[in-house]
Design a binder for these strands. Structure first.
Length: 461
RNA sequence: GGUACUCUGGCAGAACGGUUAUGCGUGAGCCUGCAAAGCUUAUACAAGGGGGUUCGACUCCCUCGGGUACCUCCA
């Protein structure tokens, strides 16, 4: 599998001969998560599910930044504590992502639970004279890391001249960044240098190395983290360990609205909770996977609606397979195999989910076509089901299922409706259809049989 | 200003030199008591502008232009 690496700006081969270790920068828990967060996390969720489908063991570590100015500010304005705020939004996070069918990461380390590791990390940097103490905190000395800027392709001198950074008198160099900030406002911890809290970037260095070792396979996050966050992580980590940090840097494009980045400061944020209520997980996932992960994707109701149409096709397809009763089967093994290979090849080639979805929808379409022509046999259905289930598993798409008792009720109602139809009492027949619709059951009248499907309820429809 | 990315048919979005992707939408048809869904079929000067390399370019090079992101809040 090849993945485009931001650092080398080339495609790198991912070594799948052994376990794969991935570190994903998670969220700062001071507010509700939005669709931009969802995209990044869904992309990595599908990546891990795809690799797991190949039988590879994945270690996926995703942090929570639970100590940060924003959390502290929020705590102050809400007359609460930083701990309460972060706990609240971590719970909120899990609710959102469970709703999105995202599989839990191997671990979700929090900065506040790794203060010792962070302090040890900083001690090493000070020992090596790469970090220094000043009046306001401990700073990383950028000039001690000659390749600073290699990830974001920035030149140090250009950064300095073009900078709009408020110069901190205490810093030796305006580019230096804090690894430890002195503070008296809780939450604070003791350190060899004084009371305070860690800087933002250091937590990811300390925790990724702790959980995954000096040199792991993929480090991911949103594109907006390239600078300064990931640049600084590289500087700290490689200075500390003396060896290469992540092998591949994989960055996910922004979600935009009307071409503009979705962000709190612009105020065009769509929360996961809100969109989930209106559109459900499957449509959001299709939306997030519909473009190449590295490119921006524009959020719009129309686009979600388009994905709703697609999702209905998947549901139809699924229920055609469930209700198949034809004994004769066509030879479709090759077709299924080809689309399965297309699907995998697309993902192997820099994780092209859009193309993978193309293969997926082609299989859906082929199935619906066979069903429409009454050519779909039971053996065919079993074959297709198996492959579709695999693809859906990777994509994280979940079909609404139904209980056995509901099934009995539905069959009964359909039977009644058939009677009415035979007697040409269409009003009564339609009433039954309406009743089923209220249960989210849609009827599909074929030539000489009627099948039903359970539709996911979509509020926005 | 610097850096990176991007510019494809009404819309969304692929193919890393040669094969009219694909989906949505739209038109027509099939099926149906009607509907929905599905299926069939049709639809598009397609390549930001201009050069160049090549037998051949969406794909490579140059140049001009538009857009977005980042340049210490950010997924």
């Amino acid at each position: 599998m090849k993945i485009q690496d931001t650092l080398s700006n080339t495609e790198q081969e991912l070594d799948i001969s052994k376990n794969i270790k991935i570190y994903l920068c998670g969220v700062t828990v001071y507010d509700e998560s939005h669709i931009g967060h969802a995209r990044t996390i869904i992309v990595f969720d599908v990546l891990r599910k795809y690799l797991e489908n190949k039988g590879i063991v994945i270690e996926l570590i995703q942090n929570f930044t639970d100590v940060d100015d924003k959390i502290i500010n929020r705590a102050q304005t809400e007359n609460s504590t930083a701990e309460k705020i972060s706990t609240k939004y971590i719970e909120n996070y899990f609710k959102d992502f469970e709703g999105l069918n995202v599989k839990r990461a191997t671990a979700y380390p929090k900065a506040t639970e790794h203060i010792d590791d962070i302090i040890k990390f900083i001690e090493k940097l000070i020992e090596k004279e790469i970090a220094y103490t000043s009046k306001n905190g401990v700073y990383f000395s950028v000039s001690k890391f000659p390749s600073y800027g290699k990830l974001s392709k920035k030149k140090i001198d250009e950064l300095q001249s073009g900078s709009r950074i408020a110069v901190d008198e205490q810093k030796k160099d305006p580019l230096d960044f804090a690894v430890w900030k002195f503070s008296d406002i809780k939450p604070i911890w003791d350190s060899p240098w004084g009371k305070g809290r860690p800087g933002w970037h250091i937590e990811c260095s300390a925790m990724s190395i702790k959980y995954l070792g000096n040199n792991f396979d993929i480090h991911g996050g949103g594109r907006d983290l390239i600078f300064p966050h990931h640049e600084n992580e590289i500087a700290q980590s490689e200075s500390c360990t003396g060896s290469q940090f992540a092998k591949i840097w994989m960055h996910v494009g922004m979600v935009t609205i009307g071409g503009e980045k979705m962000s709190k400061s612009i105020g065009n944020v769509k929360s996961i909770k809100h969109v989930l209520e209106n559109w459900g997980p499957n449509i959001i996932r299709l939306f997030c996977l519909s473009g190449h992960y590295s490119k921006p994707i524009d959020y719009s109701e129309e686009f979600l609606k388009e994905n709703l149409t697609k999702w209905r096709q998947v549901e139809t397809c699924h229920y055609e397979l469930v209700h198949v009763n034809n004994e004769n089967s066509e030879d479709i093994t090759q077709m299924i195999k080809k689309l399965g290979v297309d699907f995998d090849n697309s993902l192997d080639n820099d994780f092209n989910t859009h193309l993978a979805l193309s293969a997926f929808f082609q299989l859906v379409k082929e199935t619906n076509k066979l069903a429409a022509e009454e050519k779909l046999g039971k053996n065919n259905a079993d074959e297709i089901k198996k492959e579709l289930k695999r693809m859906r598993g990777i994509l994280g798409l979940v079909i609404s299922e139904i209980t056995e008792s509901e099934k009995g009720e539905i069959d009964e109602l359909i039977k009644n409706r058939e009677e009415y139809r035979k007697e040409k009492q269409f009003e009564k027949a339609d009433k039954i259809r309406d009743k089923l619709n209220e249960m989210s059951i849609e009827l599909i009248d074929h030539k000489n049989r009627t099948i039903w499907m359970k539709k996911e309820r979509i509020k926005s429809q």
